[in-house]
Amino acid sequence: MFNFLPMPATIVDIRQLTDKERLFTIRLDNDRGIRHRPCQFILISLLGIGEAPISISSPPVDSGRTFELCIRAVGNLTNAMHRLSVNDRIGIRGPFGNGFPVERIEGKDILIVAGGLGLAPLRSLIKYVLQERGRYGRVILLIGTKRPGDILFKEEVLKWEEDPAIETHITVDVAEPSWQRHVGVITGLFKHVGIDPFKTIAAIVGPPVMYRFVIKELLAKGIFEGNIYLDLERRMRCGIGKCGHCQINGIYLCQNGPVLSYLEARKLQEAL
């Protein structure tokens, strides 16, 4: 039987990523790792305020007993998180959801498309794939944000740009004079990357409007619908497929998602 008890945890590190986002490093008091898969999420509990779903940004085996959460201050709970400091206590439930099928895609090229905050969950996948680099073919990363200042994990992204293990392309909607890279919507990056459609697995996370355009582009390149994976956002409330908030047609995203292949998602009228 399942109850709603959050596991006590401690904030062990906080890093400011942009104006609105901070990266929190969390350790569970029971000293057990969170044991998650890339693109799973947890529910943060702040007693007296409530719970909010947050994707895990760190790879499963990175740091042993800690994990990382990239949090944008938008609501009551996330704003309250931003006011916390190192050594403050929070509650954690989870991990929830299916996560990314990292075993199923071994040997394939991986095309990762991250729009805005979408890089937060995808970072767990990117870092995982880079750790297990030998098991995968090419790794291509496309990042799109509003402004250069909004790029999450900037230092890491700059490192990835230099890293031959991963082909990184970045675009911004609104450039500044010093900006040397691409300007425009994320689909504009596709003409810079040649892919083998029969070998490529795509992983897309971004704002709701982004999916349709990116998927269209990928299908046009000949990628099979079942090889396009989406990590969808909904109002995850209970995490156990009961409360109904995350339901998309017949499925509960907190249980059967948040990662769906486009083959599955296109049968769900409410998904995209």
Binding site: G48, I49, N76, N79, A80, R83
Partner: peptide, 11 residues
């Protein structure tokens, strides 16, 4: 008032 003390926007 409790929201004020917890520094959250009461809903």
């Amino acid at each position: 008032i409790q929201g004020l003390l917890l520094n959250i926007q009461p809903r």
